[in-house]
Amino acid sequence: MRQIEADTITQAVERLCMEANYFLGQDVVDALEQSLKREESPTGQQILRDILENARIGREELSPICQDTGFTIAFVELGQEAEVVGGSLDEAITKGVAQGYTKGYLRASIVQDPLRRINTKDNTPPVIHVEVVPGDRLRLTVMCKGSGCENMSRFAMLTPAQGRKGVVNFVVETVLKGGGRPCPPLIVGVGLGGTFDQATYIAKRSLLRPVGSHHTEAHIKELEEELFEKVNATGVGPQAWGGRTTALAVHVETYPCHIASLPVAVNIECHSHRLKTTIL
């Protein structure tokens, strides 16, 4: 068994939290630049330029690109021939979040109890997803998920008869209902199939793909392209001030599902897509 120190994980999480919040990914920057070429609304163009300028300031001044530095979600792929030593995996990640948010001047946005609502003051706890995979490495992805967009996410149990058309309508309706609240241009993550829990999980996982990359299955790639066209035809545009750029990308992930079901989850992500990965 290959051993990985808990402290190494803590340090990695601390660093990834800061980097995710200061440095907008090149895939998002490229998608913004592409959309700027297509955008017809002068106001929409100005918003896209401001978003790119904001990313430049974040990068150069180590400033959080969004004041909502998000709920920290850790996606861990733990090789089954690796073991974490010197502490628990959950504690190591949680400590990394606390350190990253405190040292990095990131906002503490988490309340301990959903009803009593007292701030935990260091953005802990994170949400942690662990998958055990072949190999002896630990792949760690940190997503800092803003709640303006998370709040506009939706789920539906469609019927098999509603099929592909039902899915398309539900996704477009979700984007229209969200309007300007989730800060378009968006990255729309769709989870199709599985169970109630699995659909929402794969919707979120789809956001880990490079922005604008496509599903490997041809018919799902076509669905992504159709959704992208339709979402951008809504006219919502940057910040819902009107225009052609409502989404930078639509990602769809699927999972087998029950003969009675067609679950669909739409996880909305904003242009301020904070995501960083490392391999330990």
Binding site: I51, E53, I57, G58, S63, G146, C183, Q239, C270, S272
Partner: peptide, 25 residues
């Protein structure tokens, strides 16, 4: 503009605490 937070901050010249300090942000 939502999400242009570092840019928006440049037009803020002064910031003073007024009330409910316990609420943090």
């Amino acid at each position: 503009i939502g999400g242009a937070a570092a840019l928006v901050a440049r037009s803020i010249r002064k910031c003073d605490m007024i009330a409910f300090e316990d609420l943090g942000t």
